[in-house]
Structures are given as C-alpha cells and as structure tokens.
C-alpha cells in the first residue's frame, strides 16, 4: 500500500471532513426541530395531528434515504428561487433532516413517555396548564432519557451523510472519490476515509458518554 498521495491530497480529506461535520450539525439541528414537532403532534390529544405525524414517520422510515434524497434534489428546482448555485447543499441538508426528523421524533416520544405520569399530574394539580408543564417539568426530564439516543442519531447522521456525495456535495466521501480518480489509487483513499469517519464517530461517542455520565452524577 502506498499512501504517498496524502502529501498532495490531504487537504481534500480535511475539507471533506469539515463539510461532513457541518452538514451533520445542520441535519441534527433541523432533525431535532422536526422531531420535536412530530413528537408533540404524536402525543397530543388531537387525532388529526396523531395521524399526520404517524404517516410522516412511517413513510420516511419505510422508504430508502437515497430515494428521499433524489426526490428532494430533483423536486426542489420545481420551486421558484431554488435553482441557485449551491442548491445541492440545501437539497442534501433538507433530505437528511426530513429523514432524521422521523427517527428523532420516535426518540423524543419515547423519552417523554418514559417520564413518570405523576410528574404531569403534580404540575396539573397546582393549576399549571398542560403546555407549561410540558415545557418546565416534562421536557427537561425527558431530555435525560433522550440525550444518549440523540447522540447515537448524531453518529448515524455523520455516517449516512456520505450518501449526499451522490448529488455532488464535496463532503468527505465525495472528496475521497476525487482523490481516488486524481491519484489513480482506488484503494488506499478508502482506508484513509474509513479511519477518518471512525475517528469522528468514536470521539463523538466518547464525548457524549462523558456528558451523559456528568448529567447522571448531578442527580
């Protein structure tokens, strides 16, 4: 194996990693927002909201992320103003966020429902309205249940974001392919990129584990 191409092409990997992390951060952020909305819809007393959220979640979880990505990528230009220069970034982040939101919704719903029923009752018995009890009593406690699973979702997003290389976003995987063709070395760049993905996810899981332990220590 010959890794001498690294001295010439290492910047491709670093820029790719930066873009991958950037994409993952945005996707997790929007995914959490979508997830919160869906989870609240799912646990609300409104039947219509329940059904809409369920359809969304089931549909997204039941179709390949690649198909969802293409639907957004080729569907987006049909909307006015969506034909800009870096439109593939927007499409990639939207598609992955839509996808991640469905999984995050289930994580949040489970986390909220794991909070003891007595907590809501105690708040309501004081005259606190349901929404306020949710915000100040239930959600902060649910957060502790949710955080570990949300960390895993972050890791999943980092790995799955490699799929957006297909629509030409220069993240880690896309840049690896560039290196492969420019250096005429199809194999070694893949070893490098696998290592980089692993370093990112492993570091993240260690950091999250630490945060989690810190939160538990405060109890």
């Amino acid at each position: 194996m010959d890794f001498s191409f690294l001295s010439k092409y290492y910047m491709f990997f670093l820029i790719g990693a930066k873009n991958t992390i950037l994409i993952a951060v945005f996707v997790v952020l929007f995914g959490v927002i979508i997830g919160i909305i869906l989870a609240l819809m799912k646990i609300s007393n409104n039947k219509l909201f329940n059904i809409l959220a369920s359809i969304y979640i089931e549909f997204i979880r039941g179709t390949p992320v690649l198909v969802q990505l293409f639907i957004v990528f080729f569907g987006l230009p049909k909307f006015p103003g969506m034909l800009g220069d870096h439109m593939e970034y927007i499409a990639g982040v939207i598609a992955l966020s839509i996808n991640s939101g469905a999984y995050v919704a289930e994580i949040i719903r489970a986390g909220i429902q794991a909070v003891d029923k007595g907590q809501m009752e105690a708040a309501r018995s004081l005259g606190i309205p349901r929404s306020m009890a949710m915000r100040f009593v239930i959600i902060p406690q649910a957060f502790k249940n949710i955080l570990p699973a949300l960390g895993n979702e972050f890791i999943t997003v980092i790995k799955e974001s490699s799929i957006v290389s297909i629509i030409g976003i220069n993240e880690l995987m896309y840049n690896t392919q560039t290196v492969q063709s420019n250096s005429f070395r199809p194999f070694e760049p893949l070893i490098v990129v696998a290592g980089m993905y692993f370093i990112m996810t492993f570091t993240l899981s260690k950091v999250l584990g630490k945060v989690e332990r810190g939160m538990r220590a405060r109890d």
Binding site: D116, G118, Q119, E121, A122, A123, R124, S125, L126, G127, V137, Q141
Partner: peptide, 14 residues
C-alpha cells in the same frame, strides 16, 4: 386547581 392543593402517595416532586 390553584385553590386545591394535592399531595400524592409517590410525592411526585420535580
């Protein structure tokens, strides 16, 4: 409910 305090078996402190 603001005028009716309630105390539970399981305390239910936050």
């Amino acid at each position: 409910r603001q005028k009716m305090g309630m105390v539970f078996q399981q305390f239910n402190l936050f």
